[in-house]
């Protein structure tokens, strides 16, 4: 959109308070007092063509539909290179963005508490951030948004607060796809598509809580702890509940092997299903050359699924995983 806009306009940002002569220049341009933000489109000789002073006052920050209407007339009277398509796209984006800006924030999932959590993390106030997140979850913030949010990454990085974050996500786990990593987490993306069933009958177990964790792209559960150390408080984790069909989905990364270790890649999980004892197990990956023949042979008996990676229609790497929960 910036490129479209730049076809006709060189943007000049003037800070009236911090720039030398900013206030005086603003007064000259406005020919008097006025609002902030305020806009003027000048030709190359500095002659004003149109300003943001519309029929209903200054629309320096056009967000309401009538304000955007006026802003578009500002462009229509000055654009020469932008095409009608450019204009249409710009208008569409502005209206969409304006609608978002003017939408009452209470309507947003998580209410006001969610952005406050991000601010608190930025300030290093992790306890406050957790309190905001709990409030946001009560305001129907989807739990999967939290681990996917890079603004909350520092909360996950801090071992003490990570434990509290885990407790929170466990409590609010839902039968919805979970994202365990934010977009900046290194590693090959992987979608675990799981199903939790009764070990004997194969019937789906609805509402089961699945807790997953694994190593990061460095093969570590926690930074600086190699050879499998730190699994008690891993950095990459997720909680999800199974749906009516016993199904769940988790977006994460392909776990790396422990550094300098012959242990093959694996994902740990714990499953709590009503009427069943807790299952603690792990799955391995068929394509891993470190997966030994003896492990392959003993896997069914030990209830260690071996996952065969696939590609879905969206070209994502998918790991179909069936978790069988024994009654005893």
């Amino acid at each position: 959109m910036r490129t479209r806009f730049a076809k006709d306009y060189v943007v000049v940002m003037l800070d009236v308070e911090r720039m030398t002569d900013g206030a005086a220049l603003a007064e000259e341009l406005r020919q008097g007092d006025g609002g902030i933000p305020w806009l003027v489109i000048l030709d190359g000789d500095g002659k004003a063509k149109v300003t943001s002073d519309g029929p209903d006052g200054n629309v320096g920050c056009p967000a309401q539909p009538a304000e955007i209407d006026y802003f578009m007339t500002m462009l229509d009277t000055t654009r020469r290179h932008m095409t009608d398509d450019d204009r249409a796209i710009l208008e569409r984006e502005m209206r969409s963005y304006g609608a978002e800006l003017t939408r009452p924030r209470r309507d947003a999932p998580g209410g006001r508490a969610y952005p406050l959590a991000a601010t608190a993390v930025k300030d290093g106030a992790f306890s406050a951030a957790l309190a905001h997140l709990e409030e946001a979850l009560q305001e129907e913030l989807p739990p999967h948004a939290i681990l996917a949010n890079p603004a909350l990454r520092l909360l996950r990085e801090d071992p003490d607060h990570r434990i509290q974050l885990q407790a929170l996500l466990r409590e609010y786990a839902q039968p919805e796809p979970v994202v365990m990593v934010d977009p900046f987490e290194p590693g090959q993306r992987l979608r675990l598509v799981g199903r939790v069933v009764d070990h004997t009958a194969g019937t789906p177990l609805a509402g089961a809580l699945v807790h997953l964790f694994h190593t990061d792209a460095s093969g570590e559960y926690r930074p600086g702890m190699d050879a499998g150390g730190g699994a008690g408080n891993p950095r990459l984790f997720g909680f999800v509940r199974t749906d009516d069909q016993g199904a769940f989905a988790v977006d994460t990364i392909y776990p790396e092997r422990y550094p300098n270790s012959a242990v093959p890649r694996h994902v740990h999980y714990r499953v709590l299903a009503e009427g069943y004892p807790e299952l603690v197990s792990e799955c391995f990956f068929d394509a891993d050359p470190l997966l030994s023949e003896s492990t392959r042979r003993s896997a069914p008996e030990r209830n260690f699924p071996i996952v065969v990676l696939e590609q879905d229609e969206a070209h994502r790497t998918v790991a179909p995983l069936t978790i069988r929960v024994p009654q005893e």
């Binding site: 806009f5 730049a6 076809k7 006709d8 306009y9 060189v10 943007v11 000049v12 940002m13 003037l14 800070d15 009236v16 308070e17 911090r18 720039m19 030398t20 002569d21 900013g22 220049l25 603003a26 341009l29 406005r30 902030i36 933000p37 305020w38 806009l39 003027v40 489109i41 000048l42 030709d43 190359g44 000789d45 500095g46 063509k49 320096g60 000055t78 020469r80 290179h81």
Partner: peptide, 29 residues
């Protein structure tokens, strides 16, 4: 601090050379 008039002058010069307009946005911290 940056000189507002210099910023505007640079913007106008760029606008003139590229046959565009200067979109001037007045703001405050």
């Amino acid at each position: 601090p940056v000189d507002a008039r210099a910023v505007l002058a640079r913007g106008l010069e760029t606008a003139k050379h590229s046959e565009r307009n200067a979109f001037v946005y007045l703001s405050a911290p």
